[in-house]
Computed example of a mutant assay.
Amino acid sequence: MKPLPELDTAERWRLLLGEAGAANLGAGAGAGPAMDRALAWLYGRDDAAQNPANPSDTLDRHGGSEASQLSVPEWINRIHELFPKETIERLERDAIERYGIDEVVTNLEVLERATPNPALLQAVMRTKHLMNPQVLAMARKLVEKVVRELIEKLAKQVQRAFSGTRKPQQLSLRGAANQFAARQTLTRNLRHYDVRSSRLVIQRPLFHVNTRRVLEPWQVFLLVDQSGSMLGSVIHSAVTAACLWGLPGVKTHLIAFDTDVVDLSETIADPVEVLMGVQLGGGTFIGKAVGYAAERIVAPRRAIVVIVSDFYEGMSEHVLLAHVRALVAQGSTVLGLAALDERADPVFDRELAGKLVEAGAHVGAMTPGQLAAWLAEKLK
């Protein structure tokens, strides 16, 4: 799990005092201003209640350069990036119980009016454990809409990348009209060209056979870190797996992990079910997940193991490196993805990533479309 921002003593006092401490402590730097703005968005409502004449002043404490008017989904996503789990739980509870900010997690009417988008999808996944059954059912419909749009966008890229390879074309004297080999037929019948009539007599038409695009059977394992910092990667991994599922010659496995390993391969065709069942948070045992996949490889030289993680390993890194070396030695391909969202913003433990490369793995940051192209190239 990605380390949270570290604050020095002055920054901690700056968050505690807010606007009152700005004169002596300054505006802060690093993650401090963003944390201050997220706290002010919520707790500044107390000041707004005490200053009804101009509530906007109290809600804008100038803790950072970004806009102060966050939407509820944006605020939820922001606090999950900035604060530890215990603090997040307290902030969410205060937002709902103390300030009645229930637009996403409890208010069915507001949720029905919400515009489906990736930010809302992430907010729903982070707060679905707070929803009552009726709201959860509505949230699921929003998730379905966003996932459908993501799949429609990625499916074309996957189909194009996985068009397969053609076997060497063979010719036959028989075939359907759509298999007619025009160039080969003309070449083979040139000797029958009638100069006086300027006509080419086709005595032996030729047709293509065995032109069906084929792929050798492969196994693709998507191992997805489901710690809170990897939410974007979890979403796009589920969508990518759904697009890969059912491709001829490719058996896709979707495996989520934190300190435990959960095999989601049985529900891979339903990414909504996958996402609504994911439990975010917890530690990160990458080596355990890689070992789980290694035990399920049938043909080592036709197996690709994709590790989607920020590579902040919670168990001994020697276990992970040993598994990777063994996979590479037996001819399997190992790819480490530092990010798997549309921005492909790589935030990861570069030291461990470097060791993985030394062990024989490929490590990089790819969007889902780039991953599909990379996999297709390997499978060819």
Rank of each mutant, 00 (worst) to 15 (best):
V209P: 11
P118Q: 07
H129A: 14
D345C: 00
G291S: 11
A40M: 13
V209Y: 13
H253P: 09
P205Q: 15
R350P: 00
S65N: 11
H62I: 08
V105T: 10
A338L: 04
G44S: 03
E109N: 02
L321E: 10
L231V: 15
V347S: 04
K141H: 09
C243H: 05
A329F: 04
E112Q: 07
K167A: 12
S265Y: 13
S265V: 05
L379P: 03
K145Q: 14
G26R: 11
V357D: 00
R343L: 03
L108G: 05
D46N: 04
L264G: 02
A299E: 15
A27T: 12
R196F: 11
T115Y: 01
A241R: 03
P271R: 11
K355W: 01
A31W: 03
Q169M: 03
I304T: 10
A376I: 08
L173M: 02
L121V: 04
R126A: 09
A67G: 15
A299T: 13
Q330F: 00
F180Y: 13
W41D: 08
A10I: 08
A20M: 13
R301P: 01
S163L: 02
M276F: 06
R78E: 15
R126G: 03
V195H: 14
L371N: 02
L280Y: 13
R213M: 15
E295C: 07
I101A: 06
P248A: 06
L173I: 03
G336E: 10
V105F: 02
I202E: 14
L223Y: 13
K288C: 01
Y193W: 14
W13Q: 15
T333R: 15
A293E: 07
L142E: 06
P5A: 12
T115S: 11
V298Q: 12
P52L: 11
A155M: 04
I96C: 04
N189R: 10
L25C: 11
K153P: 00
R212P: 01
